[in-house]
Design a protein around this nucleic acid. Sequence first.
DNA 1: CTGAAAGCGCTAACAA
DNA 2: TTGTTAGCGCTTTCAG
Lengths: 337, 337
Amino acid sequence: MSTQAMRGTVTIEEVAAAAGVSRSTVSRVVNGSTAVSPEALESVNRAIAELNYVPNRAARSLASRQTHAIALVVPEDTTRFFGDPFFAAIVSGINSRISKSDYVLNLFIANDDPGDKTTSYLRSGAVDGAIVVSHHTSDTFIDRIAAVVPVVYGGRPVRERERDYYVDVDNARGARVATEFLISRGHTRIGTITGPLDMPAGVDRLDGFRAALADHGLTAAAVEDGNFTAADGADAMRRILETGDVPDALFIASDLMARGAMNVLAGAGLKVPDDVAIIGFDDSPVATSVTPPLTTMRQPSFEQGEEMAGILLDILAGRSPRHVTVLDTELVVRASV
Amino acid sequence: MSTQAMRGTVTIEEVAAAAGVSRSTVSRVVNGSTAVSPEALESVNRAIAELNYVPNRAARSLASRQTHAIALVVPEDTTRFFGDPFFAAIVSGINSRISKSDYVLNLFIANDDPGDKTTSYLRSGAVDGAIVVSHHTSDTFIDRIAAVVPVVYGGRPVRERERDYYVDVDNARGARVATEFLISRGHTRIGTITGPLDMPAGVDRLDGFRAALADHGLTAAAVEDGNFTAADGADAMRRILETGDVPDALFIASDLMARGAMNVLAGAGLKVPDDVAIIGFDDSPVATSVTPPLTTMRQPSFEQGEEMAGILLDILAGRSPRHVTVLDTELVVRASV
DNA sequence: CTGAAAGCGCTAACAA
DNA sequence: TTGTTAGCGCTTTCAG
């Protein structure tokens, strides 16, 4: 390996010289153009390998106006991002799809960023497009990003516009199915622990819950909200217990919150499902790690991630994918109901 | 907001024109040079705000040979990355330090990347430096990255060289302290579940364990290894149970593995700490979420992350930080011993 | 303190 | 199929 190869400063010019062709031809080879003779191809490729040439990203991006990078923007703090298996699943899905393309994924945990550097970074042409998961009403910086690069949302965006692209799960229907299952089991005093009400997913699940109840002439026995975390589920459960009026069943908008609630219930000497039946949402790994195993609505998060990435890739490739995709949820019956 | 501002294509040229100065002056203002008159400063800043100007990253990077981006490289699969609170803590620490600087953090979950795109991306000048956590013997692509940009390792790198920068915790000492604590409690038939032996952290903890035992004329009652996950801890525990010869105490190299092991123990009708005393490593949130709460060696992962980021920032600023930093661990006594 | 001029390394017409 | 020629938007001497 030559010294300059070690220094990582080989330019297209040197490759061209070594291969005995012009810069343009090297560029064509690097970019996979077919209009190159076999001999030229061969000698350029050899020169590239010998010199250990890697095209300079900035120069390429400046000239082509493309970065081949995609941002994954998570408007949450690190704790919640890492604490919730939902993100693990959705990021895996995104990563799986992106890694089959020639794009790279940059991750931005945006909430931890006081100076809003994320926004100006993304607006500075650092990426070709962005995927936003976990979108809150208060996250106005997203709009500023969407003004500059195509954005695909995970979940219905908070201020939906016609031109928005997003992949959602049918939260309202999922909540409705879950609640109806509780009703079908003979429960009548049914409460809920909702997700954050500044997120469409939180609102939609609450709506579905209420709709199911209304269909059967019932009203909510309790409504408390949380931010999808186990700690919030525990807090919400405590608030419900404090009312002294414990529901006989609970629809809880995330498995993690269900786990927190179940802990509190156990501490209070209440049995699941005998005293309180519980149904969660997600079907994440925690659903099977709690005792008793959690009945829950499965949402296809990995697939959601793959789909989002696929749509963004389509947009970037100049295709015209569907704007709205809604994936279905599925009831998974275990022992908590 | 003007149309061009919306399109995000305002260039330094237009700002200069609007402010009635030259490109150079705008550049000076943007880069915080002091050699600008108050009037020029004022009018440039106004033009920037009015036009909503954001400097083009690629152009700036091409001209200045800096990207102001740092890569966080995690050679693990997504599942383990998201499943282990250790990463949450270390990433929080890194993020916390970086977000106070004017650098941005790009995350690469490198193992999921079949075509080794991460390597060529990082070698293409896309970042100014990299932080590598969870380094395995087999991860040779790291060397190719380290040849091009400064790298700071979390934990002693697998092939340590003098010029390497890293921040480690004193794993050997931590394991030793943990094991000695078990011995001091009167245990003599002590086993261990180690971390992966292709990682220095795994090896060092095993060494410390063995050293403590040797000091007291004891030998290991069982040695099984795992990849730091709960599932691996459970598997290892099963293998130990299968020998029919159950140790009366276990040093387990991660809290997550301890949790897995405790589940298996409970399933086998064995009580912690009465039948088997257990001490873990990490003091992650899982330590307090298991029953009984886990005695464990606390490692300062958040601080480790902060320190790593600080060192890289120092290198990039042209300072000369210490190459090796070793942080201490601390025994946290709870009910599992 | 300011502006002019020369690139940074690459892509993309346009000719040949 | 190939090379020549302009830039992409910015930083950075170097004069003034």
